[in-house]
Design a protein around this nucleic acid. Sequence first.
DNA 1: TCACGTGCCTAAAGGTTATAGGTGCAAACC
DNA 2: GGTTTGCACCTATAACCTTTAGGCACGTGA
Lengths: 193, 193
Amino acid sequence: MGRVGLSAERLTRAGAELADEVGFEAVTASALARRFGVKVASLYSHVRSSQDLRTRIALFALEEMADRAGEAVAGRSGRDALAALANVYRDYAREHPGRYAAAQLRLDPATAAASAGVRHARLTRAILRGYDLDEPDQTHAVRLLGSVFHGYVSLELGGGFSHSAPDTDTTWARTLDALDALLRNWPAPPPTT
Amino acid sequence: MGRVGLSAERLTRAGAELADEVGFEAVTASALARRFGVKVASLYSHVRSSQDLRTRIALFALEEMADRAGEAVAGRSGRDALAALANVYRDYAREHPGRYAAAQLRLDPATAAASAGVRHARLTRAILRGYDLDEPDQTHAVRLLGSVFHGYVSLELGGGFSHSAPDTDTTWARTLDALDALLRNWPAPPPTT
DNA sequence: TCACGTGCCTAAAGGTTATAGGTGCAAACC
DNA sequence: GGTTTGCACCTATAACCTTTAGGCACGTGA
Protein backbone atom coordinates (compact mmCIF):
# COMPACT_ATOMS: atom_id res chain seq x y z
CA MET A 1 0.00 0.00 0.00
CA GLY A 2 2.26 2.74 -1.23
CA ARG A 3 1.88 6.22 0.03
CA VAL A 4 -0.53 8.40 -1.77
CA GLY A 5 1.11 11.63 -0.74
CA LEU A 6 -1.56 13.17 1.41
CA SER A 7 -1.06 16.62 2.82
CA ALA A 8 -3.27 19.32 4.24
CA GLU A 9 -3.05 21.23 0.96
CA ARG A 10 -3.95 18.31 -1.25
CA LEU A 11 -6.82 17.43 1.02
CA THR A 12 -8.04 21.00 0.93
CA ARG A 13 -7.92 21.22 -2.85
CA ALA A 14 -9.57 17.86 -3.30
CA GLY A 15 -12.15 18.88 -0.74
CA ALA A 16 -12.90 22.01 -2.73
CA GLU A 17 -13.39 19.98 -5.90
CA LEU A 18 -15.57 17.53 -4.04
CA ALA A 19 -17.64 20.42 -2.70
CA ASP A 20 -18.31 21.64 -6.23
CA GLU A 21 -19.40 18.18 -7.26
CA VAL A 22 -21.57 17.07 -4.36
CA GLY A 23 -22.18 20.23 -2.33
CA PHE A 24 -20.21 21.62 0.56
CA GLU A 25 -22.29 19.97 3.28
CA ALA A 26 -21.56 16.58 1.73
CA VAL A 27 -17.81 17.04 2.07
CA THR A 28 -16.93 14.54 4.76
CA ALA A 29 -13.69 13.00 5.87
CA SER A 30 -15.05 9.65 4.71
CA ALA A 31 -15.86 10.83 1.22
CA LEU A 32 -12.47 12.46 0.89
CA ALA A 33 -10.69 9.32 2.08
CA ARG A 34 -12.64 7.27 -0.44
CA ARG A 35 -11.59 9.66 -3.16
CA PHE A 36 -7.94 9.17 -2.27
CA GLY A 37 -8.33 5.41 -1.87
CA VAL A 38 -7.19 5.69 1.69
CA LYS A 39 -8.60 4.85 5.12
CA VAL A 40 -10.40 7.62 6.95
CA ALA A 41 -8.09 7.60 9.92
CA SER A 42 -5.19 8.51 7.66
CA LEU A 43 -6.65 11.94 7.07
CA TYR A 44 -6.39 12.75 10.73
CA SER A 45 -2.63 12.95 10.48
CA HIS A 46 -2.97 15.93 8.19
CA VAL A 47 -6.13 17.58 9.39
CA ARG A 48 -7.29 17.91 12.95
CA SER A 49 -10.96 17.30 12.44
CA SER A 50 -13.74 17.40 9.97
CA GLN A 51 -14.38 20.98 11.04
CA ASP A 52 -10.74 21.83 10.48
CA LEU A 53 -11.01 20.43 6.96
CA ARG A 54 -14.08 22.52 6.21
CA THR A 55 -12.42 25.62 7.57
CA ARG A 56 -9.40 25.07 5.34
CA ILE A 57 -11.66 24.74 2.31
CA ALA A 58 -13.44 27.94 3.28
CA LEU A 59 -10.16 29.83 3.61
CA PHE A 60 -8.98 28.43 0.31
CA ALA A 61 -12.13 29.60 -1.45
CA LEU A 62 -11.86 33.05 0.12
CA GLU A 63 -8.29 33.36 -1.14
CA GLU A 64 -9.16 32.19 -4.60
CA MET A 65 -12.03 34.65 -4.84
CA ALA A 66 -9.92 37.48 -3.46
CA ASP A 67 -7.24 36.77 -6.06
CA ARG A 68 -9.78 36.99 -8.85
CA ALA A 69 -11.33 40.07 -7.33
CA GLY A 70 -7.97 41.81 -7.08
CA GLU A 71 -7.21 41.14 -10.72
CA ALA A 72 -10.65 42.21 -11.85
CA VAL A 73 -10.60 45.52 -10.04
CA ALA A 74 -7.07 46.48 -11.03
CA GLY A 75 -7.02 49.34 -13.49
CA ARG A 76 -10.74 49.98 -13.40
CA SER A 77 -12.87 52.54 -11.64
CA GLY A 78 -16.44 53.66 -11.24
CA ARG A 79 -19.19 51.54 -12.69
CA ASP A 80 -16.61 49.51 -14.51
CA ALA A 81 -14.87 48.46 -11.33
CA LEU A 82 -18.17 47.85 -9.60
CA ALA A 83 -19.35 45.49 -12.31
CA ALA A 84 -16.00 43.72 -12.47
CA LEU A 85 -15.98 43.01 -8.77
CA ALA A 86 -19.61 41.97 -8.67
CA ASN A 87 -19.13 39.64 -11.61
CA VAL A 88 -16.24 37.94 -9.90
CA TYR A 89 -18.53 36.85 -7.11
CA ARG A 90 -21.36 35.82 -9.36
CA ASP A 91 -19.15 33.94 -11.78
CA TYR A 92 -17.22 32.24 -9.03
CA ALA A 93 -20.43 31.06 -7.41
CA ARG A 94 -21.68 29.62 -10.67
CA GLU A 95 -18.38 27.99 -11.55
CA HIS A 96 -17.72 26.71 -8.05
CA PRO A 97 -20.95 26.51 -6.09
CA GLY A 98 -19.45 24.26 -3.44
CA ARG A 99 -16.52 26.55 -2.84
CA TYR A 100 -18.78 29.57 -2.74
CA ALA A 101 -20.88 27.84 -0.11
CA ALA A 102 -17.70 27.02 1.77
CA ALA A 103 -16.71 30.67 1.77
CA GLN A 104 -19.89 31.43 3.72
CA LEU A 105 -18.81 29.17 6.57
CA ARG A 106 -18.89 31.03 9.82
CA LEU A 107 -15.34 31.53 11.03
CA ASP A 108 -14.32 32.43 14.53
CA PRO A 109 -13.21 36.08 14.75
CA ALA A 110 -9.49 35.35 14.94
CA THR A 111 -9.53 33.10 11.89
CA ALA A 112 -11.71 35.55 10.00
CA ALA A 113 -9.36 38.42 10.79
CA ALA A 114 -6.42 36.45 9.36
CA SER A 115 -8.34 35.32 6.29
CA ALA A 116 -8.67 36.77 2.82
CA GLY A 117 -11.97 38.19 4.04
CA VAL A 118 -10.19 41.40 4.88
CA ARG A 119 -8.93 41.64 1.30
CA HIS A 120 -12.52 41.43 0.12
CA ALA A 121 -13.50 44.26 2.40
CA ARG A 122 -10.56 46.35 1.19
CA LEU A 123 -11.40 45.70 -2.44
CA THR A 124 -15.00 46.71 -1.95
CA ARG A 125 -13.83 49.88 -0.27
CA ALA A 126 -11.47 50.52 -3.16
CA ILE A 127 -14.41 50.45 -5.55
CA LEU A 128 -15.87 53.37 -3.69
CA ARG A 129 -12.91 55.59 -4.51
CA GLY A 130 -14.63 56.23 -7.81
CA TYR A 131 -17.58 57.71 -5.96
CA ASP A 132 -17.79 60.66 -3.65
CA LEU A 133 -18.45 59.21 -0.23
CA ASP A 134 -16.98 60.12 3.13
CA GLU A 135 -17.05 58.14 6.32
CA PRO A 136 -19.28 56.84 7.73
CA ASP A 137 -21.24 56.64 4.50
CA GLN A 138 -18.40 54.74 2.94
CA THR A 139 -18.76 51.97 5.48
CA HIS A 140 -22.50 51.93 5.03
CA ALA A 141 -21.98 51.58 1.31
CA VAL A 142 -19.43 48.80 1.74
CA ARG A 143 -21.95 46.89 3.79
CA LEU A 144 -24.71 47.52 1.32
CA LEU A 145 -22.60 46.32 -1.58
CA GLY A 146 -21.57 43.24 0.34
CA SER A 147 -25.20 42.52 1.12
CA VAL A 148 -26.35 42.87 -2.45
CA PHE A 149 -23.53 40.78 -3.89
CA HIS A 150 -23.94 38.01 -1.37
CA GLY A 151 -27.71 38.15 -1.29
CA TYR A 152 -28.18 38.17 -5.02
CA VAL A 153 -25.68 35.44 -5.67
CA SER A 154 -27.00 33.11 -3.03
CA LEU A 155 -30.62 33.61 -3.97
CA GLU A 156 -29.83 33.02 -7.63
CA LEU A 157 -27.74 29.97 -6.80
CA GLY A 158 -30.47 28.63 -4.55
CA GLY A 159 -32.94 28.87 -7.38
CA GLY A 160 -34.86 31.70 -5.76
CA PHE A 161 -35.12 33.61 -9.02
CA SER A 162 -35.68 30.74 -11.35
CA HIS A 163 -38.73 30.14 -13.48
CA SER A 164 -39.83 33.74 -13.61
CA ALA A 165 -40.02 36.15 -16.48
CA PRO A 166 -37.09 38.54 -16.90
CA ASP A 167 -33.95 36.46 -17.06
CA THR A 168 -31.50 36.82 -14.23
CA ASP A 169 -28.77 38.24 -16.43
CA THR A 170 -30.93 41.24 -17.16
CA THR A 171 -31.83 41.71 -13.54
CA TRP A 172 -28.17 41.48 -12.65
CA ALA A 173 -27.26 44.18 -15.14
CA ARG A 174 -30.05 46.43 -13.93
CA THR A 175 -29.00 45.80 -10.34
CA LEU A 176 -25.51 47.01 -11.12
CA ASP A 177 -26.97 50.05 -12.85
CA ALA A 178 -29.09 50.72 -9.82
CA LEU A 179 -26.15 50.43 -7.45
CA ASP A 180 -24.04 52.69 -9.61
CA ALA A 181 -26.80 55.27 -9.68
CA LEU A 182 -27.24 54.96 -5.95
CA LEU A 183 -23.57 55.45 -5.21
CA ARG A 184 -23.34 58.45 -7.53
CA ASN A 185 -26.32 59.95 -5.80
CA TRP A 186 -26.01 58.72 -2.24
CA PRO A 187 -28.86 60.13 -0.14
CA ALA A 188 -28.00 62.55 2.64
CA PRO A 189 -28.52 61.41 6.24
CA PRO A 190 -32.19 61.34 7.16
CA PRO A 191 -34.09 64.54 8.02
CA THR A 192 -34.64 63.24 11.56
CA THR A 193 -37.52 65.66 11.92
CA MET B 1 -43.93 4.37 29.38
CA GLY B 2 -46.96 6.50 28.67
CA ARG B 3 -47.44 8.03 25.28
CA VAL B 4 -45.89 11.41 24.89
CA GLY B 5 -48.21 12.56 22.15
CA LEU B 6 -45.84 12.94 19.26
CA SER B 7 -47.09 14.36 15.99
CA ALA B 8 -45.55 15.92 12.93
CA GLU B 9 -46.61 19.36 14.15
CA ARG B 10 -45.19 18.97 17.63
CA LEU B 11 -41.96 17.63 16.20
CA THR B 12 -41.74 20.54 13.81
CA ARG B 13 -42.30 23.13 16.51
CA ALA B 14 -39.86 21.51 18.88
CA GLY B 15 -37.39 21.24 16.02
CA ALA B 16 -37.72 24.95 15.39
CA GLU B 17 -37.02 25.71 19.02
CA LEU B 18 -34.09 23.36 19.00
CA ALA B 19 -32.75 25.07 15.90
CA ASP B 20 -32.77 28.42 17.66
CA GLU B 21 -30.91 26.93 20.59
CA VAL B 22 -28.24 24.85 18.91
CA GLY B 23 -28.29 25.90 15.27
CA PHE B 24 -30.28 24.46 12.41
CA GLU B 25 -27.57 22.08 11.24
CA ALA B 26 -27.50 20.51 14.69
CA VAL B 27 -31.19 19.62 14.54
CA THR B 28 -31.11 15.83 14.31
CA ALA B 29 -33.71 13.18 14.83
CA SER B 30 -31.65 11.92 17.75
CA ALA B 31 -31.54 15.26 19.50
CA LEU B 32 -35.24 15.73 19.01
CA ALA B 33 -36.01 12.27 20.38
CA ARG B 34 -33.86 13.03 23.41
CA ARG B 35 -35.78 16.22 23.95
CA PHE B 36 -39.06 14.31 24.00
CA GLY B 37 -37.64 11.51 26.14
CA VAL B 38 -38.44 9.05 23.41
CA LYS B 39 -36.49 6.59 21.28
CA VAL B 40 -35.30 7.79 17.91
CA ALA B 41 -37.20 5.20 15.95
CA SER B 42 -40.46 6.55 17.31
CA LEU B 43 -40.08 9.73 15.33
CA TYR B 44 -40.20 7.83 12.10
CA SER B 45 -43.90 7.12 12.58
CA HIS B 46 -44.58 10.83 12.24
CA VAL B 47 -41.85 12.04 9.95
CA ARG B 48 -40.49 10.26 6.93
CA SER B 49 -36.85 11.12 7.34
CA SER B 50 -34.43 13.52 8.83
CA GLN B 51 -34.64 15.54 5.63
CA ASP B 52 -38.42 15.57 5.85
CA LEU B 53 -38.15 16.95 9.36
CA ARG B 54 -35.82 19.72 8.26
CA THR B 55 -38.10 20.61 5.37
CA ARG B 56 -41.07 20.87 7.72
CA ILE B 57 -39.12 23.22 9.95
CA ALA B 58 -38.18 25.32 6.95
CA LEU B 59 -41.79 25.56 5.79
CA PHE B 60 -42.89 26.41 9.31
CA ALA B 61 -40.36 29.23 9.53
CA LEU B 62 -41.39 30.57 6.14
CA GLU B 63 -45.04 30.63 7.26
CA GLU B 64 -44.22 32.31 10.52
CA MET B 65 -42.18 34.98 8.79
CA ALA B 66 -44.82 35.52 6.14
CA ASP B 67 -47.46 35.97 8.84
CA ARG B 68 -45.39 38.62 10.52
CA ALA B 69 -44.58 40.24 7.21
CA GLY B 70 -48.24 40.40 6.24
CA GLU B 71 -49.16 42.08 9.49
CA ALA B 72 -46.29 44.51 9.28
CA VAL B 73 -47.06 45.67 5.77
CA ALA B 74 -50.81 46.03 6.26
CA GLY B 75 -51.87 49.64 6.25
CA ARG B 76 -48.48 51.03 5.37
CA SER B 77 -46.97 52.29 2.16
CA GLY B 78 -43.83 53.81 0.75
CA ARG B 79 -40.76 53.99 2.93
CA ASP B 80 -42.88 53.03 5.90
CA ALA B 81 -43.92 49.75 4.36
CA LEU B 82 -40.40 49.10 3.11
CA ALA B 83 -38.93 49.53 6.57
CA ALA B 84 -41.65 47.46 8.19
CA LEU B 85 -41.08 44.53 5.87
CA ALA B 86 -37.33 44.74 6.10
CA ASN B 87 -37.45 44.87 9.87
CA VAL B 88 -39.58 41.76 10.00
CA TYR B 89 -36.80 39.80 8.37
CA ARG B 90 -34.04 41.30 10.44
CA ASP B 91 -35.88 40.95 13.71
CA TYR B 92 -36.98 37.43 12.95
CA ALA B 93 -33.42 36.42 12.17
CA ARG B 94 -32.16 37.88 15.40
CA GLU B 95 -34.95 36.41 17.49
CA HIS B 96 -34.90 33.03 15.77
CA PRO B 97 -31.54 32.49 14.08
CA GLY B 98 -32.10 28.77 13.74
CA ARG B 99 -35.47 29.19 12.11
CA TYR B 100 -34.11 31.87 9.83
CA ALA B 101 -31.37 29.49 8.76
CA ALA B 102 -34.00 26.81 8.23
CA ALA B 103 -35.93 29.13 5.96
CA GLN B 104 -32.89 29.25 3.67
CA LEU B 105 -33.02 25.50 3.12
CA ARG B 106 -33.13 24.72 -0.53
CA LEU B 107 -36.54 23.30 -1.41
CA ASP B 108 -37.38 21.38 -4.51
CA PRO B 109 -39.42 23.50 -6.95
CA ALA B 110 -42.76 21.84 -6.22
CA THR B 111 -42.42 22.27 -2.47
CA ALA B 112 -41.19 25.81 -2.88
CA ALA B 113 -44.14 26.70 -5.09
CA ALA B 114 -46.55 25.44 -2.44
CA SER B 115 -44.73 27.16 0.40
CA ALA B 116 -45.17 30.55 2.02
CA GLY B 117 -42.29 31.66 -0.17
CA VAL B 118 -44.76 32.90 -2.72
CA ARG B 119 -46.41 35.07 -0.05
CA HIS B 120 -43.05 36.65 0.59
CA ALA B 121 -42.66 37.44 -3.06
CA ARG B 122 -46.15 38.91 -3.21
CA LEU B 123 -45.56 41.05 -0.16
CA THR B 124 -42.34 42.41 -1.56
CA ARG B 125 -44.15 43.25 -4.76
CA ALA B 126 -46.87 44.93 -2.75
CA ILE B 127 -44.30 47.25 -1.23
CA LEU B 128 -43.52 48.52 -4.68
CA ARG B 129 -47.04 49.79 -5.19
CA GLY B 130 -45.90 52.87 -3.31
CA TYR B 131 -43.30 53.53 -5.97
CA ASP B 132 -43.68 54.17 -9.64
CA LEU B 133 -42.30 51.10 -11.34
CA ASP B 134 -43.60 49.15 -14.31
CA GLU B 135 -42.65 45.67 -15.42
CA PRO B 136 -40.03 44.46 -15.89
CA ASP B 137 -38.43 46.96 -13.54
CA GLN B 138 -40.78 45.86 -10.82
CA THR B 139 -39.41 42.34 -10.98
CA HIS B 140 -35.87 43.64 -11.01
CA ALA B 141 -36.68 45.67 -7.93
CA VAL B 142 -38.30 42.71 -6.18
CA ARG B 143 -35.15 40.72 -6.72
CA LEU B 144 -32.94 43.56 -5.56
CA LEU B 145 -34.93 44.00 -2.38
CA GLY B 146 -34.85 40.29 -1.70
CA SER B 147 -31.12 40.28 -2.22
CA VAL B 148 -30.49 43.17 0.13
CA PHE B 149 -32.74 41.84 2.86
CA HIS B 150 -31.35 38.36 2.72
CA GLY B 151 -27.77 39.46 2.17
CA TYR B 152 -27.72 42.02 4.92
CA VAL B 153 -29.42 39.82 7.45
CA SER B 154 -27.24 36.83 6.83
CA LEU B 155 -24.01 38.82 6.82
CA GLU B 156 -25.00 40.56 10.04
CA LEU B 157 -26.06 37.30 11.63
CA GLY B 158 -22.83 35.63 10.53
CA GLY B 159 -20.82 38.32 12.23
CA GLY B 160 -19.62 39.82 8.97
CA PHE B 161 -20.22 43.36 10.14
CA SER B 162 -19.15 42.99 13.71
CA HIS B 163 -16.31 44.83 15.39
CA SER B 164 -16.27 47.76 13.05
CA ALA B 165 -17.05 51.39 13.58
CA PRO B 166 -20.56 52.52 12.64
CA ASP B 167 -22.99 50.28 14.46
CA THR B 168 -25.11 48.01 12.35
CA ASP B 169 -28.35 49.68 13.37
CA THR B 170 -27.19 52.88 11.75
CA THR B 171 -26.08 51.11 8.62
CA TRP B 172 -29.42 49.34 8.50
CA ALA B 173 -31.31 52.64 8.72
CA ARG B 174 -29.14 54.19 6.03
CA THR B 175 -29.57 51.14 3.86
CA LEU B 176 -33.33 51.52 4.03
CA ASP B 177 -32.96 55.20 3.19
CA ALA B 178 -30.80 54.29 0.24
CA LEU B 179 -33.28 51.71 -1.03
CA ASP B 180 -36.14 54.15 -0.66
CA ALA B 181 -34.23 56.79 -2.60
CA LEU B 182 -33.32 54.25 -5.24
CA LEU B 183 -36.90 53.11 -5.71
CA ARG B 184 -38.19 56.66 -5.90
CA ASN B 185 -35.58 57.43 -8.48
CA TRP B 186 -35.15 54.15 -10.33
CA PRO B 187 -32.60 54.60 -13.12
CA ALA B 188 -33.80 54.25 -16.69
CA PRO B 189 -32.62 51.24 -18.67
CA PRO B 190 -28.99 51.57 -19.69
CA PRO B 191 -27.99 53.82 -22.59
CA THR B 192 -26.78 50.74 -24.51
CA THR B 193 -24.72 53.05 -26.71
C1' DT C 1 -65.12 -8.06 27.33
C1' DC C 2 -62.74 -8.57 23.40
C1' DA C 3 -60.56 -7.05 19.20
C1' DC C 4 -58.09 -3.69 17.03
C1' DG C 5 -55.30 0.10 15.77
C1' DT C 6 -51.65 2.81 16.66
C1' DG C 7 -48.02 4.85 19.52
C1' DC C 8 -43.85 3.78 21.17
C1' DC C 9 -40.51 0.07 21.91
C1' DT C 10 -36.38 -3.28 20.96
C1' DA C 11 -33.20 -4.95 17.65
C1' DA C 12 -30.18 -4.47 14.03
C1' DA C 13 -27.54 -2.74 10.06
C1' DG C 14 -24.90 0.81 7.85
C1' DG C 15 -22.55 5.28 7.71
C1' DT C 16 -19.63 9.15 9.93
C1' DT C 17 -16.31 11.13 13.36
C1' DA C 18 -12.54 10.48 16.24
C1' DT C 19 -8.69 8.29 19.05
C1' DA C 20 -5.03 4.91 20.10
C1' DG C 21 -1.66 2.26 18.81
C1' DG C 22 0.88 -0.66 15.17
C1' DT C 23 3.72 -1.50 10.85
C1' DG C 24 6.82 -0.69 7.23
C1' DC C 25 9.37 2.38 4.10
C1' DA C 26 13.02 5.72 3.44
C1' DA C 27 16.20 8.88 4.57
C1' DA C 28 19.83 10.12 8.02
C1' DC C 29 23.45 8.98 10.68
C1' DC C 30 27.54 6.45 12.08
C1' DG D 1 26.26 -1.27 5.49
C1' DG D 2 23.70 -1.53 9.36
C1' DT D 3 21.03 0.95 12.67
C1' DT D 4 18.00 4.45 13.94
C1' DT D 5 14.39 7.39 13.52
C1' DG D 6 10.34 9.70 11.57
C1' DC D 7 6.42 9.63 9.17
C1' DA D 8 2.60 7.97 6.22
C1' DC D 9 -0.83 5.03 6.38
C1' DC D 10 -3.09 1.01 8.65
C1' DT D 11 -6.20 -1.80 11.99
C1' DA D 12 -9.16 -1.69 15.82
C1' DT D 13 -12.38 0.41 18.53
C1' DA D 14 -15.98 3.37 20.34
C1' DA D 15 -19.55 6.74 20.08
C1' DC D 16 -23.18 8.85 17.56
C1' DC D 17 -26.77 9.41 13.78
C1' DT D 18 -30.18 7.37 10.33
C1' DT D 19 -33.35 4.12 8.91
C1' DT D 20 -36.03 -0.24 8.72
C1' DA D 21 -38.45 -4.33 10.65
C1' DG D 22 -41.07 -6.30 13.82
C1' DG D 23 -43.26 -6.52 18.68
C1' DC D 24 -45.98 -5.20 22.78
C1' DA D 25 -49.44 -2.79 25.14
C1' DC D 26 -52.68 0.66 25.97
C1' DG D 27 -56.97 3.00 24.90
C1' DT D 28 -61.02 3.04 22.07
C1' DG D 29 -65.17 1.20 19.85
C1' DA D 30 -68.11 -2.87 19.17
